[in-house]
Design a protein around this nucleic acid. Sequence first.
DNA 1: GTAATAGTGTCTCTAAGACACTATTGG
DNA 2: CCAATAGTGTCTTAGAGACACTATTAC
Lengths: 265, 265
Amino acid sequence: MEKYSSEEILKHYDSSKYCTPDGYTSDIAVFTIISEEIGPHKPPKKILKLMLIKRASLDQEGNPNMEGGKWALPGGFVQPDETAYVAALRELEEETGVNDLKIKHFGVYDKMGRDQRGWIISNAHYAIVPENVLAQRRAADDAAEVELFDMDEVFRLDLAFDHRKIIEDALWYIRKDMSITTLAKNFLAEEFVLSDLQGVLMTVLDEPWIKLDAQFFRKAPSLPFIEKVTVNGDLKKTNRWSKGNAQLYRFNDYEPFVSIYNAKY
Amino acid sequence: MEKYSSEEILKHYDSSKYCTPDGYTSDIAVFTIISEEIGPHKPPKKILKLMLIKRASLDQEGNPNMEGGKWALPGGFVQPDETAYVAALRELEEETGVNDLKIKHFGVYDKMGRDQRGWIISNAHYAIVPENVLAQRRAADDAAEVELFDMDEVFRLDLAFDHRKIIEDALWYIRKDMSITTLAKNFLAEEFVLSDLQGVLMTVLDEPWIKLDAQFFRKAPSLPFIEKVTVNGDLKKTNRWSKGNAQLYRFNDYEPFVSIYNAKY
DNA sequence: GTAATAGTGTCTCTAAGACACTATTGG
DNA sequence: CCAATAGTGTCTTAGAGACACTATTAC
């Protein structure tokens, strides 16, 4: 077999022979769970929210913007020197001022016609932002352009492009990942109380044993991926949400693995 | 807020302002499980295999081909009028002559430098081909270009582009999906015997209770997503792999859902 | 005291794990 | 009758589910 150098091969290669996409974007469905305080010594009500931006009517050069005025997922064009994942990190840091967030790819949207500007491929991610992080961001930025919505509200909005479909898929993946990974920890503070975990799970899952206090509080302490917080050998407790003291927990490094073949039915 | 028509907006839009990718490809990791007959009245040994193609040294125009001579995942450039998923279906049908296969997206590979021809984005899928389908294909085509490899062999080959990484990821996803979905059914015939299912699971998973016959044969019959095959109310049995008769099963439509929060540990 | 959160006590019942045992049949 | 596949019998123990009950403390 003959050998050719890369240079020789590239000399013959002509990318214009193939149709190339007109753009490659990275979109991010940013989820957070807001705690709504409903009184002293009561665990707050937790609500899953999605961050959307309102697309400007005009772009920076004063020309009318595609899908301007509609609500959309944050995101933008990926530069050739970065991956879509890096672009998502960058764009999210620009938006929220935070790095070190949980971001995960979950799908690609590449159907011709999804964007009138041409053949534009979107690499979709979801991100989890703990509420305290988002709170400080919202204060810093002008709130007119960025807003958090309940999932009910989201699907009543007029959304740009095919973002409705992307959001539906993101929600599906976040539910799935909440069930089979320790994704919940990304919604919680470092140290949390069992009712915090219960609240996070209930925003996304709908299983009876999670809702029933007696069952949840009995099972949860023995979950292998959380552990009681201790200080000098003493159990660390808090009375943040109750009059009595509640045990604080944290996630450990255990990575659970589930299978339908050894599950209970 | 002013309103603009799509035409007016597109008049101002100039895609050359943005860097666009040089190509968009769809790659497919085609898995099958080969049954190796080891004697009459014995369940065959099952081995997970991956289908790879050997890249031609020269392209159709006689020019040297990029990464020619190396083994690679089947795939190719996506046309603007199709999605990467449709392209994967099309290319797989061209290769194997079969449609109606299980194909699933699992990742995007978009790092600059992964393909020397430029900024080429690969949308990666895995596919499951039952062995009988693949057997008929291999007879039809010339076998020099297409071959099935053990996973051990695969990772000893000199693979094109970043296909090693893509295959490692595909294997991870197929293991995961085998655990939490009824993916196994795509490796099995319509009607199968418990030892067939056990064999498929063992090619990918490594859990003790699957290997222990007594435990597997007791648990498996009560899995909610498979059911005994009956003919006119009589249980349908086979002596394909044994001297005695073994019950035939099929998958039903039940979609199991597992969660780390109600699993056993 | 009352009300609320955050649990525990106790019972029942199902299922997992372990391992011995049976049923069937080709050679 | 032997060997091999394809199971079943039976015992023990762990854990899920149900529901009543307790502990603590702000007001």
